[in-house]
Design a protein around this nucleic acid. Sequence first.
DNA 1: GGGTACATGTAATCAGTTACATGATTTA
DNA 2: TAAATCATGTAACTGATTACATGTACCC
Lengths: 174, 174
Amino acid sequence: MLTTTSYLVLGLVGHLGSPTSYELKRAVADTIGGFWSVPHSQLYAEPIRLTALGMLTEEQEQGGRRRRTYTLTDTGRAELDQWLAMPTDEGTELRDLALLKLYFGGQAGDGAVQRVAERAAEVHKRRLAGYERLVSSPPPNVDLHQLSILALAARYEEEAVAFWSAVAADPDLT
Amino acid sequence: MLTTTSYLVLGLVGHLGSPTSYELKRAVADTIGGFWSVPHSQLYAEPIRLTALGMLTEEQEQGGRRRRTYTLTDTGRAELDQWLAMPTDEGTELRDLALLKLYFGGQAGDGAVQRVAERAAEVHKRRLAGYERLVSSPPPNVDLHQLSILALAARYEEEAVAFWSAVAADPDLT
DNA sequence: GGGTACATGTAATCAGTTACATGATTTA
DNA sequence: TAAATCATGTAACTGATTACATGTACCC
């Protein structure tokens, strides 16, 4: 019934207190987005569903932008708690278009693998720099668990930079 | 128009020659699944779409299981080539339910983070073992690009094991 | 005061998920 | 020959994607 997106929203609302959809969007873009992305339209649609289910309450501004702010209900809090406490057997899915292209690299034309690899190396360098900036000067209301995740993500990005640099240097992996 | 799933199917059909949907399913489960999963129903539905678009041809067995085998058309091959040659700006998304739960660990009840971490450590140990087995004795028709990806995935799994073990040992990260 | 970027949402379409269902092989 | 598992598919529903659209604030 509830999807992962639902729990993500419940968790964020719990963490942020009484955010608007736009604030959810910002929070996702800043941090979670790296390992669980959600398009912003979902961050408008999902709170509405959750409100209908009694997991959130909605309060709308009168006048101005007429923004809606959401807060957890006791039901929503209980649902979130129970989900957080349940271990999962799913591992990590390294969803990555460039890896998918490399996977089929044997079928690619001349130079294709190298060009893909060069771009991927750049992308991961940028992300790595971003994470390092975040870890060294974290925004307010980022806690230790969240920081540790950023550190793990940063380590992955390091691996990825090394990996793609090697592929770019020797696209046929001889 | 074409989705990533489309290209995944085109790539697999190109790689395997003339697979059935079931063979696509096996190929995904064995290797790609770790970094780009697709439910099996899509591996039945998508080739039908691609056939309608003229990118695949379908041949159906008479009698027996009446399986359908697919092969690339020239159009399909061209579409795949062009996609493979195009670099992408998207990075890796580390889609991981356990990380998401840990992200909200500050809101979780007593012992929840630890239990999630213990399970996650086990899951990643198993995956690591699986990748190592694959790398040391790869199945036939796995090429060098694919092997290198498995090696990268294995390195991530090592990181993950270390990460989750540390969290399990000290859930509050003091 | 006009442009530009930020902020806030809605609508249509369709891929993806989930569940169901049954046929073919193997094995005990 | 019964049970279990592998293999092959279909159907319904809905969440996710994509595109559009407009309002508000800020800056030059």
